[in-house]
Design a protein around this nucleic acid. Structure first.
Length: 672
RNA sequence: GCCGGAGUAGCUCAGUUGGUUAGAGCGGGCGUUUCAUACGCGCUAGGUCGGGGGUUCGAUUCCCUCCUCCGGCACCA
C-alpha cells in the first residue's frame, strides 16, 4: 500500500486561523511530507467549512454579501498555511460546486437506501435570538422558558419539518467495524469512549433545516438545506471528485483523518454511518481517525479575553517557520493535551537546535575546513574502525525508529529518535577526536579522513530525517554539505538511505549558523515583540494543593500576587450584590449548582457555580452573594452560566466560604 | 454520579508478558575536552514506581480497595 490520503478538519470560517488550527495543519503537513519522502503517492487535503446560520448572520451584520464574506474568510485560511511551511494538494470549500454535487449525490444514495426519512423537528425557538435551544439550555421562570440571554420573551415551541438520518440503524454495524478495526479510532482511550457512546444507543439525526437558507439544498425539496455534519464531513469525499473519476479511485478511502478531540464523535460515528448508508462497504471506509488534544498557552487556556491567543504567523516570523514546526511537533505528545510555552520554545531551540544539531553541523564543517580544506580527496574506508561501525548502526536504528514512529502517527517520537542519533554523532566526534589524529601527522591522516567522511555522512542522513518537520532547514544543511535538497519523488524511498561516506570534501561551505543561539537579551526582545508576559505562570491552585500534600518538607510558599493591573482594568469588573432566587443541583454533576440570581435586572440570571460540594441548594436560596456580572458567559455541562459567585477557598473543595455584604443590600448594588 | 484513562526522578515522559543495580531528555550539581554557536562529552538524582491490603518464593508490573487528576456522558462548531 504505497498511497496515502490524509486530511485536516475543514475549518469553520467564522473563526480565524490560530495556534490550534495551525497545530493540526502542521502535524498533517509533516505526516504528509513523511509519506512523500517515502515515495508514497500522497494526497493532503485541507479546506474550509462555510455554511450555516452563523455565517449567514455574520455576513449580514457586516453588511456584506454572504458569498463575498466566505470568499474572504476562506482565503484567510488558505493563505495562512504556506507561510507555515504547509503544502497541501487540495483546498476544499463547502461552497465549491464540486462539493455541493457530491454531497447531494451522497444524500440521494442514503435516501434511496431508505436511511433518510422526513419527520418533524421539535425545538424551542427564541424569537429574540432567532435561534433554537434545547430545553436544558433554557431557564425556567414563572412566565416560561427563557433563553440564556434572559432578556427576551419566553421561547416558543415550534415544529419544523426536517429530514432525519437513520443513525439508529447502524449501531451494531459500527460496533462490529470498531471491533474488526482496532486502529480506526486513535488513540486507544478515545476508541473506548466512542465505543461506549455507541453502545449507549444512537438516536436518529436531524440533518436538515428550513430556518435558514445558507447551505446545500436538499435534493427534491429545496425548502430545506442540509445541516452541518452531512455537509461538512463529506468534504473528504467530494474533494476527490465524483465516483468513477481518477482521483477518487486513486485515493479513496482516506488513510488518516486528523481531528481535534472535540469533533471526534462526528468523524468516528456519524461519518462511517453516512458512508455505510450510502452503500460503502467496510473496505471503503476511512482507515483511521486520530484525535489530538488541546493546547494551552503558557499553562493557561487559550482565550481571547486573556489576550493570549497566539498568532502562528507572527511566531513564524520571529522564530522561523521550521523552528515553530519543530517545537510543536517535538513538545507535544501527539494525541495528548499539551502546552505551548514561549520559554520552553526558546529552551528547546537553544538546547536541541542550536547546541546539538546546529553545533554538530558547524563543528563538523569547521573541522573539514581546517583539516581538509579546498575540496581534497579523502579516503573514507581504509582506516574505518569500531567507532564508525557503531555510528552507522546508530544511524540505521534512528531511521528505522523514526519511520516506525511516523507510521504510528507519533511525530514526537520520530524526532526523539532523530535526536538520539544527533547526540550519538556529537559523541562520536568527541571520541574519534580528529584534531588529535591530525596532530600525529601522516600517521593520523587516514583516521582524519574516515572521521570527517563519517561525520558528514551522518549529517546527510540527519538532513533527511528532519525533512518532514523542517524542510527549509534540511535544505540549508544540505547546501552546507554540498548536496542537493531533497526532492521527493513518487516511487522513490528517500529514507532508504545507503551508507555512502564521501570521498572528497568538495562543495562544503561553512556558512552562517543555521540556528543562531538565542541569548537572554535576544529572548527578552523577542518576548517584548510578541507581547509575552515574561512572568512565570502562576502556580495553579491544584498544583499548589498537590505540592502541599506531597511534602511538608518545604514551608508553604506564600501566594504570589498575580501580575499587577491598573485601576482601569479593575474598573472593568462588574461586581454586584446578587440574591439567590432559586437553586438546584445540576444532574450528573457533583459540584455544580444551577442558581437563578437576582442582580437587579428585569429577570434573574442563571449562574452555574461549582460550589455544590460545600453547599446544598437550600443553603443558598435567599442568600446574598457577590456576583461577577460581566464575566463572559460559559457553558458548563451544557448549561449557560452568566456570571460567577465569589467564594473563598479553604481546606479543599468541601470548604468554601461565600462572600456576602456585611449588611443587607439590594440586589444589583455595585461592589467596589 | 455512571463509564473510561492516568498517577514512575524537580519538569516532560518511557518501561515492566512478575524476577539480578527502575530508564531517557531537560533542569540542578560536579568534572573534562577544545574541532565548534561559552558549544560537546562524562559523572551525578540516593525516586516508599499515588496510599493500603491480597495472590506469589518474589510485584512498580496480577487482583481488591481507597485517594487524586483527566476525559466522555449525544444533535453544539
Amino acid at each position: 500500500m504505497n498511497r496515502y490520503y490524509l486530511t485536516t478538519p475543514i475549518y469553520y470560517v467564522n473563526d480565524v486561523p490560530h495556534l490550534g488550527t495551525a497545530y493540526t495543519t502542521i502535524v498533517a503537513d509533516a505526516i504528509s511530507r513523511y509519506h512523500r519522502l517515502r515515495g508514497h503517492d500522497t494526497r493532503f487535503l485541507t479546506g474550509t467549512d462555510e455554511h450555516g446560520e452563523k455565517i449567514e448572520r455574520s455576513a449580514k451584520e457586516k453588511g456584506i454579501d454572504v458569498r463575498k464574506f466566505v470568499d474572504d474568510a476562506s482565503a484567510r485560511f488558505r493563505d495562512a498555511w504556506p507561510p507555515l511551511g504547509v503544502e497541501f494538494d487540495d483546498f476544499i470549500r463547502t461552497t465549491d460546486k464540486r462539493h455541493v454535487e457530491v454531497v447531494q449525490d451522497l444524500w440521494e444514495r442514503c435516501r434511496k437506501n431508505g436511511h433518510i426519512y422526513e419527520g418533524t423537528y421539535e425545538g424551542l425557538y427564541c424569537v429574540g435570538c432567532e435561534g433554537y435551544y434545547t430545553e436544558k439550555e433554557l431557564t425556567p421562570t414563572p412566565e416560561g422558558l427563557l433563553c440564556p440571554m434572559g432578556t427576551h420573551k419566553p421561547a416558543e415551541k415550534v415544529k419544523e419539518p426536517t429530514f432525519f438520518f437513520r443513525l439508529s440503524a447502524f449501531e451494531q454495524r459500527l460496533l462490529d467495524f470498531y471491533e474488526k478495526n482496532p486502529g480506526f479510532v486513535s488513540p486507544e482511550s478515545r476508541r473506548n469512549e466512542v465505543m461506549s457512546f455507541v453502545k449507549g444507543g444512537l438516536q436518529d439525526l436531524s440533518i436538515s433545516r428550513t430556518s435558514f437558507s445558507w447551505g446545500i439544498p436538499v435534493p427534491g425539496d429545496t425548502r430545506h438545506v442540509m445541516y452541518v455534519w452531512f455537509d461538512a464531513l463529506t468534504n473528504y469525499l467530494s474533494a476527490l471528485g465524483p465516483e468513477g473519476t481518477s482521483l477518487r479511485s486513486r485515493f479513496w478511502p482516506p488513510d488518516l483523518h486528523l481531528v481535534g478531540k472535540d469533533i471526534l464523535r462526528f468523524h468516528a460515528v456519524y461519518w462511517p454511518a453516512f458512508l455505510f448508508a450510502a452503500g460503502f462497504d467496510e473496505a471503503h471506509l476511512p482507515r483511521k481517525v486520530f484525535a489530538h488534544g488541546w493546547l494551552t498557552i503558557n499553562g493557561q487556556k487559550m482565550s481571547k479575553s486573556l489576550r493570549n491567543v497566539v498568532e502562528p504567523l507572527k511566531l513564524a516570523e520571529v522564530f522561523g517557520t521550521d523552528v515553530v514546526r519543530y517545537y510543536l511537533l517535538r513538545e507535544i505528545n501527539f494525541g495528548q493535551d499539551g502546552d505551548f510555552s514561549h520559554a520552553q520554545l526558546v529552551a528547546r531551540y537553544n538546547a536541541e537546535l542550536a547546541d546539538s544539531l546546529g553545533n554538530l553541523l558547524n563543528r563538523t564543517l569547521g573541522l573539514c575546513a581546517k583539516l581538509r580544506g579546498g575540496g581534497v580527496a579523502i579516503d573514507p574506508t581504509s582506516a574505518r574502525g569500531e567507532l564508525e561501525a557503531r555510528l552507522e548502526e546508530q544511524a540505521a536504528t534512528a531511521v528505522l525508529g523514526s519511520m516506525a514512529a511516523w507510521d504510528e502517527v507519533a511525530p514526537h517520537r520520530a524526532i526523539e529518535s532523530t535526536w538520539t542519533l544527533i547526540r550519538a554523532a556529537n559523541k562520536y566526534v568527541d571520541e574519534a577526536a580528529p584534531w588529535a589524529e591530525a596532530k600525529k601527522g601522516d600517521a593520523g591522516k587516514a583516521r582524519v579522513d574516515v572521521i570527517l567522511a563519517t561525520a558528514l555522512e551522518t549529517l546527510r542522513w540527519i538532513s533527511a530525517l528532519i525533512w518532514p518537520v523542517m524542510p527549509e532547514v534540511s535544505a540549508k544543511i544540505r547546501a552546507q554539505l554540498g548536496v542537493l535538497p531533497l526532492a521527493p519523488k513518487q516511487g522513490e524511498d528517500l529514507l532508504r538511505l545507503h551508507w555512502e561516506p564521501r570521498s572528497d570534501t568538495s562543495g562544503l561551505s561553512l556558512g552562517t549558523p543555521v540556528f543562531p543561539k538565542i541569548d537572554a537579551d535576544r529572548q527578552a526582545a523577542i518576548f517584548a515583540e510578541l507581547g509575552v508576559v515574561a512572568a512565570a505562570p502562576e502556580p495553579s491552585s491544584e498544583k499548589a494543593e498537590k505540592a502541599d500534600k506531597k511534602g511538608d518538607k518545604k514551608p508553604k510558599a506564600p501566594l504570589e500576587p498575580a501580575a499587577e493591573i491598573t485601576y482601569e482594568e479593575f474598573a472593568r469588573l462588574d461586581l454586584r450584590i446578587g440574591k439567590v432566587v432559586s437553586c438546584e443541583r445540576v444532574p450528573k454533576s457533583d459540584k455544580l449548582l444551577k442558581c437563578q440570581v437576582d442582580v437587579g435586572e428585569p429577570a434573574p440570571r442563571q449562574v452555574v457555580a461549582g460550589i455544590g460540594k460545600t453547599f446544598a441548594p437550600e443553603d443558598l436560596v435567599g442568600k446574598q452573594v457577590v456576583v461577577v456580572a460581566n464575566l463572559k458567559p460559559a457553558k458548563l455541562m451544557g448549561l449557560e452560566s452568566r456570571g460567577m459567585i465569589l467564594a473563598a477557598s479553604g481546606e479543599g473543595e468541601g470548604d468554601l466560604a461565600l462572600l456576602a455584604p456585611g449588611k443587607e443590600r439590594a440586589a444589583g448594588v455595585r461592589v467596589k
